[in-house]
């Protein structure tokens, strides 16, 4: 299951043309292999054991789309997310689901929902904008990384290798969507009372947030202030670890407005392919040329 992560083309090209490349190349070849589940092209999945009809809940339909997609070779899939702003009710369920699923500490958020009030009484409007990582096809966050810790993997997802990242946060400044946050090593229970034995108390209570997260198919706990992912930049990864299980991203399954869709845009029969073909589709800051993989319906 161990696989080398692929280098993106631009870097290879760069190496070819740079005179000084030889030495770097050597160094790169020596680089220790990384185990990143995201790079696992053979996403074996557990089957969805019943038929899904168009009348079924979108969640089920997408899950069956997902199964179809996982059966294809990785390079033929194109994961996209579609967010229907007409259906989003600004509930933040996705925000929190993501936080819990990925055991995000204070200050780290992958999918905030931005709320804006517009208009004047009594003609008022409110807009809700969930903002995961756009998984840009031209991601400005990637080329700036000095150590290739962040890159677009075969799934087309911009991932971060926590063991590679030096925590320089250059990528954070490069992302036009504010989609990256840094893990400062905090815990939500930090300010609570110890008083164990008298009340339940912090030492035991913090277990749920210190126990392992499964991001990128790795288990990492938080028992100190310095071990990765503490000290790393973090971001939405389309829940690769769940896709692998044949499960949709956590934000998608818990979307109570059924505003969030996920799937393989290359599959003409998939719900997402349908949706992004609608005329009311748009992407954020398209003018920057980042080519986001997150589409919004308005």
């Amino acid at each position: 299951m161990k696989k080398r992560k692929t280098e993106d083309l631009s870097r290879r090209d760069f190496l070819k043309i740079t005179g000084a490349a030889v030495s770097f190349l050597g160094a790169l070849e020596l680089a220790p292999e990384k185990v990143l589940a995201s790079a696992d092209t053979s996403l074996e999945t557990r089957p969805l054991k019943f038929d899904v009809s168009p009348e079924d809940d979108q969640i089920l339909r997408m899950q069956s789309d997902l199964r179809r997609a996982l059966a294809k070779p990785v390079e033929e899939r194109r994961w996209v997310m579609v967010i229907d702003l007409r259906k989003c009710l600004g509930c933040h369920a996705c925000t929190i689901a993501c936080v819990v699923e990925n055991k995000l500490p204070p200050g780290v958020v992958y999918r905030p929902v931005i709320i804006e009030e517009l208009g004047t009484y009594p003609n008022v409007a409110m807009r809700f904008l969930p903002r995961p990582c756009m998984q840009c096809d031209e991601p400005p966050c990637v080329p700036v990384c000095p150590v290739n810790a962040t890159y677009k993997d075969e799934n087309g997802v911009v991932v971060i290798d926590y063991d590679q990242c030096i925590g320089c946060r250059y990528c954070v400044t490069a992302c036009p969507y504010g989609a990256r946050t840094f893990d400062f090593g905090d815990l939500y229970t930090d300010e609570t009372a110890e008083s164990e034995g008298i009340i339940f108390g912090k030492p035991s209570a913090s277990a749920y947030e210190r126990s392992a997260s499964y991001e990128y198919g790795e288990t990492r706990q938080r028992n100190d202030h310095t071990s990765s992912p503490i000290g790393n930049v973090r971001k939405c990864h389309f829940c690769l670890h769940r896709l692998k299980e044949g499960m949709l991203p956590a934000c998608t399954t818990t979307c109570i407005g059924r505003a969030t869709y996920f799937g393989d845009a290359n599959d003409q029969d998939s719900l997402v392919a349908d949706l992004i073909a609608s005329p009311n589709v748009m992407r954020l800051k398209e003018e920057l040329g980042t080519q986001p993989r997150v589409y919004y319906l308005t």
């Binding site: 969805l48 369920a93 299980e245 818990t254 109570i256 059924r258």
Partner: peptide
């Protein structure tokens, strides 16, 4: 592997 949707309080 199938899950339904719950609100943010439920998630918390």
């Amino acid at each position: 592997i199938i899950e339904g949707a719950i609100c943010p309080k439920g998630q918390s």
